[in-house]
Amino acid sequence: MPDGSFSHPQQRQFNPYTENGGTILAIAGKDFSVIAGDTRQSEGYSIQTRYAPKVFRLTDRAVLAVNGFAADGNMFVKKVQQRLEWYRHAHAKDMPLGAIARLIQTMLYGRRFFPYYVYNILGGIEEDGTGAVYSFDPVGSYEREACRAAGAAQSLVQPFLDNQIYFKNQQAPAGQSHPLHLPLSDVLAIVIDSFTSATERHIEVGDGLEIYVVLTKGRPTQDLEGYRGVKELTTRPDGDRVFLIQRELKKD
């Protein structure tokens, strides 16, 4: 009360979380991995920025996409990068992908009772040279998969991926079976279609698209040549390589 008396009970609350929209997606191939996310950051009906990256290169063979509460996401990526740097200093090499996945689990579960409000998708190349995708929930439960969508438009994109990547509800021609892995050009087309579709029907998705492509050591790169403005982000020669494709999405 204005008089400062305690005659009436009062309650105050601070909500430490918010939801910043956007969508991320990753697909694993036989010898590559594609990790993508849009760049819009919003709160409610307001767009905070049209360019806030959600996908980050961790090493030459690992890329992490984070979606949910942007502040938590950025902090989490920073902490993962710090742990990876410590690993490099201690072991003079990059941490393997499976180990990064387990690291992320322990880091997330370490905050079990005040979680990072983010969904993580880790993509890259395993030590045996195969493409891999690991998806996480906010408290560290994780699994390795061939593809995963997360974020605001997860419910729009995931069933589309079930159909196009896993060939769900499709029958293979007689005597044939569905391919276990798709070629890179098909995967990139599906990723772009997924995001243009999500942009069309979801107000929190749009503005820009960043597609990271991780290729296993020695893999030819001609599949990427058709795309405008492909940037190579690889730091060391003769290893796995990371590329970035940036595209525009509708801004309405």
Binding site: A153, L156, F160, N163, S197, A198, E200
Partner: peptide, 11 residues
């Protein structure tokens, strides 16, 4: 409906 929107927009 959300899932239908997503797949229909793609197919």
């Amino acid at each position: 409906s959300e899932k239908l929107f997503g797949v229909a927009e793609g197919l």
